[in-house]
């Protein structure tokens, strides 16, 4: 369960990151009320997932989190790139 949770958390964080840099990623500017939520999610979701992974699985948890973060970033990148077509 650690890996899917970390993957989802990191994917959400990367998408929030893209939303916060809307012009770079050609995304609509988020409404002002949504920006603090996006900031919070970008920071808290991956850190929470990391804490959970390390607490439950130690070194293996950290490795799972790094792999999840990398793959989530790749997924987010591809998702945003294909959106342009």
């Amino acid at each position: 369960m650690t890996f899917p949770v970390a993957l989802a958390a990191c994917l959400a964080a990367f998408l929030c990151h893209a939303l916060l840099h809307g012009r770079r990623y050609r995304l609509p500017t988020p409404p002002p009320g949504l920006r603090p939520v996006a900031y919070l999610l970008r920071m808290a979701a991956p850190l929470g997932a990391l804490a959970g992974a390390v607490a439950n699985h130690g070194v293996t948890g950290a490795l799972l989190w790094f792999a999840a973060a990398s793959l989530a970033g790749l997924g987010a990148g591809l998702l945003l790139a294909t959106r342009q077509y």
């Binding site: 990367f14 990151h17 893209a18 840099h21 770079r24 990623y25 970033g73 987010a76 990148g77 591809l78 945003l80 790139a81 294909t82 342009q84 077509y85």
Partner: peptide, 10 residues
Amino acid sequence: LPDIVLLRLS
């Protein structure tokens, strides 16, 4: 960091 998930295939 800003371009961390930037991919411009087009």
